[in-house]
């Protein structure tokens, strides 16, 4: 007997009890659960109690408050056109660049990022494609932000290669304020709407920078992935 059959028949035997619903009833329960996933109370109303009253703030306020707690930077811009300059300023102020004074950023083929007026800014060199070992800064666009915990939702693909968020020491994520939602549940809905209901190879939920507490119990940033995460927030 194959391992598959052996394990499945052991499970069925284990679950078989006099009070057990019929096979049809069980199969129907499973089909129903998958067709209509339960909305577990209190999914939509979930709120975090915050001594500073952040829970009273808007979604954007809560999202920013959570990012601040995580030690992530927030760069707010008034319009899309300001993104390249704001990004260049941040890089100049925070990331040690090479001798030529030119900071190289790596990004994918995301149409929104590509359409930004990069030529208006000097001091940034743009490389395309997935991250390479020598890259210092990766730039990606997030599909959604989750106010609950300051979490960014990104998906894999040529537009925003996954490695951009893990190999470079600095990860800059561009997010529209209108894409900030309250919960992971809503962020997943935004994601599925953006991909036409198709699951990408990976959905990456990123909450602050890479960290570890494995040496001496002290939390240190930049264990393997980015030491620094910055979110560029823009409004339409």
């Amino acid at each position: 007997m194959s391992h598959r059959l052996r394990i499945l028949s052991r499970i069925r035997k284990a679950l078989d009890a006099p009070a057990m619903p019929s096979e049809t009833a069980r199969a129907e329960a499973v089909a129903e659960r998958i067709a209509h996933p339960p909305q577990h109370w209190p999914l939509r109303s979930i709120q975090t109690a915050d001594p500073e009253g952040a829970a009273q703030l808007t979604l954007i306020g809560r999202f920013k408050a959570q990012l601040a707690r995580l030690g992530a930077d927030v760069i707010e811009v008034g319009s899309v056109a300001e993104i390249p300059a704001a990004l260049a300023n941040y890089v100049a102020a925070n990331v040690a660049d090479d001798a030529a004074g030119l900071a190289r950023i790596r990004m994918g083929s995301d149409a929104f990022l590509a359409a930004l007026p990069w030529s208006s800014t000097s001091g940034l060199e743009i490389a395309a494609g997935m991250a390479e070992a020598a890259d210092v800064i990766g730039v990606s666009r997030a599909i959604a932000g989750v106010a609950e915990t300051g979490t960014l939702l990104l998906v894999s693909g040529a537009e925003n290669p996954v490695t951009l968020g893990y190999l470079p020491e600095t990860h800059i994520v561009v997010l529209e304020t209108g894409a900030i939602v309250a919960s992971y549940e809503e962020a997943m809905q935004s994601m599925l709407a953006a991909t036409g209901g198709r699951m990408p190879r990976t959905v990456n939920l990123i909450t602050g920078a890479s960290r570890t507490g494995d040496i001496g119990g002290k939390i240190v940033m930049g264990a393997h992935g980015p030491r620094r995460v910055a979110v560029v927030l823009w409004s339409a």
């Binding site: 915990t149 190879r201 939920l205 990123i206 909450t207 602050g208 920078a209 960290r211 992935g225």
Partner: peptide
């Protein structure tokens, strides 16, 4: 922590 730094959903190669 409120959420782990990296939560990744993997669906295929």
């Amino acid at each position: 922590q409120a959420f782990t730094a990296y939560t990744t959903i993997v669906t295929g190669p």
